[in-house]
């Protein structure tokens, strides 16, 4: 999956995470803001990276603003943002779920 545009999914409300994905030349770079960064930062980054890998995204710049989202939410928001950014929302990637 190739990131073609900037796209966002999620909100800034409690228990959610807002994920913005934009184009990058190589690798997945994640900029994370979270009040629980110390405790869960690595886990959040891991879920985002694993989800993007499962979607076949090789290169992306990710900005994530976490408000205490659970892993399933992080995953869902990442998939939605990636599909919007790659303009593939017409063909949902069910198997990644």
């Amino acid at each position: 999956m190739e990131i073609k545009d900037t796209a966002v999914a999620g909100t800034l409300e409690s228990s959610d995470i807002q994920i913005m994905i934009s184009k990058a030349t190589d690798g997945i770079q994640i900029e994370l803001k979270s009040d629980v960064e110390k405790q869960f930062g690595d886990q959040i980054r891991h879920v985002i990276t694993a989800t993007l890998n499962a979607l076949g995204v090789q290169a992306a710049k990710v900005k994530a603003v976490d408000k205490g989202a659970l892993d399933c939410v992080i995953k869902a928001r990442t998939i939605a943002a990636a599909q919007r950014a790659s303009e593939t929302t017409a063909t949902p990637a069910w198997e990644v779920l």
Binding site: A7, V8, T11, L12, S14, Q18, M20, K67
Partner: peptide, 13 residues
């Protein structure tokens, strides 16, 4: 506050 800013940010996006 989060709801308002979130909504504005999402609409702009």
């Amino acid at each position: 506050f989060n709801a308002i800013v979130s909504e504005l940010v999402n609409r702009q996006f």
